[in-house]
Design a protein around this nucleic acid. Structure first.
Lengths: 188, 188
DNA sequence: ACCACCATGTAAACGGTTACATGATTAC
DNA sequence: GTAATCATGTAACCGTTTACATGGTGGT
């Protein structure tokens, strides 16, 4: 599954410009899928070429024209086929956890700072997902899936926050006294 | 941060062949970082060229020679520099959640099957992380970071499991009766 | 017979990010 | 004056995956 499929997906919620699609991506699935303009615009061009979306230019006063994309019938079929064929993968790529794994090689203050950074980063995200999962917010489109995905994010990020908060001191202390184990073994 | 850094990292646990590094990757960080042979072998070659690891060939009876890599002093410094310079990112790419987001476009049975698949996939992973977080298992190398990372995985995957188990029926029912909202609005 | 394990590597293809290029409008 | 929002696109670069190529050993 690639950005093209996601574009088809958001277009089921209504016609949109590339710019709007990018923002929809951010508010709806930024916590489980990323996409930048550099991948969205070429994806839309390709979908248009394949006839899976149609495109009309809309004039604007004092702004350049915008291109509004719509899902075609072919596009709807292609989306369904793609969704039915997609195996449900779930990958995490976390430089944060790599850093934590090698915490013993870093200054304890740095490790503490990294954890604080993650907490500060996650807190507003969880708050936002809480609102989405509740049904309010997230624009419109309160489909069951929207709430499920937001609820998942809330549950999982909430657990992450709780975990790092509760184990920060333990980790920082442990790497601050690297001889602790040796001393324990020596009967200290 | 790339595979090269991770290779330097696992080599702090002791000398290893490319093959062994791959397996270490799998048991230690498969839940937050992926790497295949196709990226590990070239990474090792490049690190060797840069003098960050040294390499000695070891003859084996009835098997081709293996190349055992060791971290050099330069490599240790490079690893530390890289770890200190790495911003703590954390990215998720989940086709599973995309599928759930668009659940209303899929047959309910398919959605249920996908969730069951994820549960079946996550269950043994959580069990393994539980053992790692407890301190036993995960080969040796029971550094504080190892336990922190495993504990994080256990907490987060555990929350994911609980969430999908508790909300599966809700989601499947909701997409099974697509007219529910409309009927409610009509006073039904 | 066949599959899994050990062991190393290459090369094409893929998909995505980052940075660049342009430019008007509105608000602080 | 500086930054954010609206709006579209290109191109170089990056790192990874996938598939291919090779081949002996040990178990069922």
């Amino acid at each position: 599954m690639d950005v093209k499929t996601l574009c088809l997906g958001v277009l089921t919620e209504g016609d949109k410009t590339g710019y709007e699609i990018k923002h929809r991506f951010e508010e709806a699935f930024s916590h489980f899928f990323g996409a930048s303009f550099g991948s969205i615009y070429p994806a839309l061009a390709e979908l248009s070429r394949q006839g899976l979306v149609s495109c009309r230019s809309v004039e604007q006063d004092k702004r350049p024209d915008k291109k509004v994309y719509s899902l075609t019938e072919q596009g709807q079929r292609a989306l369904l086929d793609e969704l039915l064929a997609t195996p449900p993968r779930h990958k995490v790529r976390s430089e944060f956890l790599v850093l934590m794994y090698f915490a013993h090689l870093l200054p304890p203050a740095r490790v503490a700072a990294i954890i604080d950074q993650m907490i500060a980063h996650w807190e507003p995200v969880v708050a936002e997902l809480e609102r989405c999962a509740a049904g309010a917010a997230c624009d419109k489109a309160p489909t069951p899936g929207t709430r499920f995905a937001a609820g998942y994010g809330r549950a999982v990020l909430g657990a992450a926050l709780t975990y790092v908060r509760e184990h920060k001191a333990e980790l920082v202390d442990a790497i601050g006294e690297p001889a602790a184990e040796a001393m324990a073994l020596a009967g200290e």
